Each structure stands twice: as structure tokens, then as C-alpha cells.
Amino acid sequence: METQEITAAEAPAHPRLRENIWHIRASSDAALLITSDSRFEVGTEDALRFLKMRSHCTGFHSVEEIAQRSGLALDDVRSILASLEEAGVVFSSPAERADLDRVRAALLSICKIWSDELRLAYIGNEFRHGSLPKTALTGWLCEMYHYISDFPLAIEHGARRAEGRLKDVLVRYAQQEKHHDEFVVRTLENLGLKRDEVKGSAPLVSTRAIGLLMREMFEHEPCSVLLMAALVEAQEFQEEHIAGFKQCMHETYGAPLDAFDPFFEHQQIDVGMGHAELLADNIDLIDVTDMERLDGMVNRLHDLKHAFELQSLEIRDYYTNLNGKYFPRQRMRFSSL
């Protein structure tokens, strides 16, 4: 996707924005703006000024109100919005139905964008730098155990509501994902946890929320299972990066060099099965054009993206400083009252 420059056009009176993702570094002269169909370079100062008003571009405020709420000059707000309008970032009223080719292209694009964003912010990256304690490392793996255990059950929830070839694809996908939690249990055993304590632990609330949100989305639109696969499945297996990660885990956390072998065996299996390509390979099974249904599906997928980000925050919060919290997290039972 080629990076473009933004020029100016006229913006609507009550502006609302399309999905826009910004990568801004204060040390760089240019920021990167990503939309579902383009990338733009924007001066860093202009990008930072825009962020002051972005929060108020919800479609409920006039340009004058945006200027007042953000503290920017009215002419500056108009100028920024005009540039964003030219870039296609300012939202325009949609038709009741969408063009199917446009739907499929947009969903493929946004799944790639959000998947990249999740990888950039993934808590697993922090362990490579040794910035979190070992309790957070094992806590993260416990949450992966619970999530991976639940994932095929959520897919089956969607498969029960699907028909035809979509149903066949989802049933096969669920079957292929079953028992993959065993790879994580073996990894945790290699790090010193007991099998029974892993299986008897309780997921964090954010991990449970991911399962509930998946079921809600799959129930409304079974084809959204394919979007989920594009969002979360590993896309490549790079042995040199994995070797570096295992060496870092050994040096930083004292993990045996082979401790993560089961974890990465699971990743290799998923990559080999082509789960990350399920959406692209079956894009013809995306046949939703009703705008209300599309809005609901995309909103739920966006909620799931943020649920994974929330999970990283909760893992960091719960497992970094235990301060007497149970490790791993335990289920609450009536008999304990």
C-alpha cells in the first residue's frame, strides 16, 4: 500500500471519522496515518494537533464546538478536517446496502491492520526485553491456556448456526483447534507449574470476556469466525526469531532452552494448517451487504481487538505484583464462603 500525502477539501458540518490509526514518534518529522485503504504521511506537529480534536469528531459536534472543546483555533480545525476529507478519513453517510466486493476488500484490509496492531502491542513482546517478572510470564501462559481451551468451543458455537459450505469450514476449523491447550500445559510444566494447578486455575475476567464476545459475534454472524481467524492466527513461523526468544527466556527468566518447544510446536501446526488464510481462502463465504449487519459485525470484531488489549493490561496488573493474590488465579467456590 503506497504512502500518500494529504491535500485539502471541504469537510461536513458535524464531522465523524472513518477508522484511522496513527503511528506518531516525537523524534520523527512525519507521522503515519493508516486507513482501511490507504496510508498517508502527515507532519508530526500536524498529527499531534489533530489528536487534540480527534476525541470530539463523533458526529455530534459542529466544527465550532470541536474547536471550543479542543482548544484549537477554528481555522485550524477547518484546515485539518479539510485535509482529512481529501484523504477519505471523514465519514460520509452510507447507503443501506454495501457493494459486496467493497465489503470483502474492506474486511480483509481491516483484519490485517488490526492484527498488525495487536502484534505490536502484544504483551509477549515485553518478555523478550525482560521488562516483566517471571510471574507475569507464567500468568500470560495460563491465560493462553484458558483462551486456547475455549477457542474451539466458541467456533463450534458459530458452526451450529452456519449452513452449507461455511458450516463445513467452521466444523473442520473447530476440530483442528481442539486439544491445542495441551501444548501450553506442557510449556507451563517445563516452567515449574503442576498440570493440576494449571487446569484448576481460573481465567482472568478479560480472558472470559474474549470468549463471551466471540460467541456473541459468531452467533449473530457465523461467517465472522473467518474474521476472527484473520485477526488472531499466527501468520508465519520464523525459526530464527523463535530461537532468539527461547535464548532470551533462558537468560532472563532461567527457563530451560527447550521449555517453550511445545508452545512453538503449536504455532507451527497452526501456521501449517493455514488458519491465518481462512478468510482470504474463503472470502466468497462473506455475503453480508446489509449495512446494519455489517456495522454490528465490525463493531463486535473491534470490541474483540480491544478485549485482547485489555487482557494484556490485566495480565500485567494481576501477575506483575502478586501482593498476596492467588497464583495462578483461583476459582471462587460456594464452599469457600
Results as ranks from 00 to 15, higher is better:
E85C: 01
N321R: 15
I21M: 07
V288W: 01
E86C: 10
K52V: 07
L322C: 07
P328W: 10
F327G: 02
E309M: 12
L304N: 01
Q175L: 15
W140G: 00
A259C: 12
L285K: 05
V42I: 15
G211T: 06
G139K: 01
L322Q: 07
E182N: 09
F151Q: 00
H56P: 03
F327Y: 15
F327S: 00
G272K: 12
D281Q: 13
H306S: 01
M144V: 09
S206Y: 00
F245Q: 08
Q268E: 14
T3G: 04
V198I: 13
D101C: 02
V90C: 04
R25F: 14
S312F: 11
G254C: 14
A229W: 04
L81C: 05
L212P: 00
A30C: 07
A280N: 11
K246W: 05
E265H: 13
A136T: 09
G158W: 14
R18S: 01
W140S: 00
R69M: 12
Q235V: 07
R215F: 08
H157P: 02
S109A: 10
P203R: 07
S149Q: 13
E2C: 03
R316P: 03
T44N: 10
D99M: 05
F40H: 10
P256L: 13
T44H: 11
L81F: 05
P133D: 03
F327D: 01
A105P: 00
D76S: 12
P133S: 01
T44F: 13
E163P: 11
L337V: 14
M273T: 06
E65S: 09
D287I: 04
F308G: 00
V205L: 15
R69G: 02
L118S: 03
A174D: 07
S149F: 15
E197H: 11
F264H: 09
G139M: 01
T207W: 06
R331G: 11
A98K: 07
R293T: 02
R97G: 00
T138S: 07
A230Q: 01
R78Y: 08
R186G: 04
